[in-house]
Amino acid sequence: MRLNLVLELMDVPGQLVKVLEPIGSLGANLVTVIHKRDYKTENGKVPVQLTLEGELEDLKNVVKRFEEMGFTITQMDDVILKEKISTIFFGHIIDNDLRDTMDRINDLDGVSIVGCEIKLDGEDRSTALLNIEADIGLKQFIFDKIEEIAEEKDILVINEV
């Protein structure tokens, strides 16, 4: 059986070797690796495409190990598993505890903030751009939760369309 994966790796020495280690040790074979360091995702990670062969159980064990090791699998057999979402907060975001806002978003199952850019305007209102990575199919749920948080904190939120 063959399995195609796309993983996101941090752009630091040793990451590719680290991701390749469990493949052979768990009984699978590596067929193809496409690793283009000159291309990075919005969160600064490098996508790596792997094609593996092996018994179904061995391939499942490899995927499980990747997840245990903290690697993000964005595609499996051409099915997108993660999606990128951007949202903008505008208002007194620092005064209304940006940390709490981000923690509440990160606490949602299958959701992780992968980037945050803040523009401060002195004592006036500020702007924060949040880049979020989420399991596929959660976009509307996330937007609804973000709207709840923003309404509670009297912050304007602009979600992507």
Results as ranks from 00 to 15, higher is better:
residue 126 S to N: 11
residue 12 V to E: 15
residue 91 G to S: 09
residue 25 S to Y: 08
residue 61 N to A: 14
residue 121 D to P: 00
residue 83 E to I: 08
residue 29 N to T: 03
residue 5 L to P: 05
residue 94 I to E: 05
residue 17 V to Y: 14
residue 8 E to R: 01
residue 79 V to G: 05
residue 38 D to T: 04
residue 8 E to C: 06
residue 40 K to G: 02
residue 72 T to W: 09
residue 95 D to G: 13
residue 74 T to L: 06
residue 137 G to L: 04
residue 149 I to H: 07
residue 38 D to R: 01
residue 69 M to L: 11
residue 43 N to W: 12
residue 25 S to P: 00
residue 159 N to G: 12
residue 139 K to N: 14
residue 13 P to G: 03
residue 48 V to H: 01
residue 138 L to D: 10
residue 151 E to A: 12
residue 119 K to A: 15
residue 12 V to K: 15
residue 118 I to K: 07
residue 7 L to H: 01
residue 11 D to M: 02
residue 148 E to R: 00
residue 138 L to C: 10
residue 35 H to P: 09
residue 6 V to G: 01
residue 71 F to P: 07
residue 38 D to I: 02
residue 1 M to V: 12
residue 90 F to V: 15
residue 143 F to Q: 14
residue 6 V to P: 00
residue 59 L to K: 01
residue 94 I to Q: 08
residue 34 I to R: 08
residue 104 R to W: 06
residue 52 L to N: 04
residue 161 V to W: 09
residue 4 N to E: 10
residue 120 L to R: 14
residue 35 H to L: 06
residue 87 T to H: 12
residue 92 H to T: 08
residue 4 N to I: 09
residue 92 H to Q: 09
residue 138 L to Y: 12
residue 97 D to K: 14
residue 93 I to G: 03
residue 159 N to D: 14
residue 149 I to S: 07
residue 111 V to T: 02
residue 68 E to G: 07
residue 120 L to M: 13
residue 128 A to Q: 02
residue 96 N to W: 06
residue 63 V to L: 05
residue 103 D to A: 15
residue 4 N to A: 09
residue 161 V to R: 15
residue 87 T to C: 11
residue 110 G to P: 00
residue 23 I to G: 00
residue 28 A to Y: 01
residue 150 A to F: 00
residue 129 L to T: 15
residue 107 D to W: 09
residue 68 E to D: 12
residue 19 V to A: 13
residue 112 S to G: 06
residue 150 A to V: 02
residue 100 D to P: 14
residue 107 D to Q: 13
residue 91 G to I: 03
residue 147 E to D: 11
residue 13 P to D: 07
residue 35 H to V: 05
residue 26 L to T: 01
residue 66 F to R: 03
residue 22 P to Y: 00
residue 65 R to N: 13
residue 159 N to C: 13
residue 116 C to F: 09
residue 146 I to C: 10
residue 36 K to N: 13
residue 148 E to H: 00
residue 90 F to C: 13
residue 124 D to I: 00
residue 129 L to G: 14
residue 157 V to W: 07
residue 71 F to D: 05
residue 97 D to P: 10
residue 110 G to A: 00
residue 38 D to W: 02
residue 63 V to K: 04
residue 119 K to D: 15
residue 105 I to Q: 12
residue 83 E to Y: 08
residue 89 F to C: 02
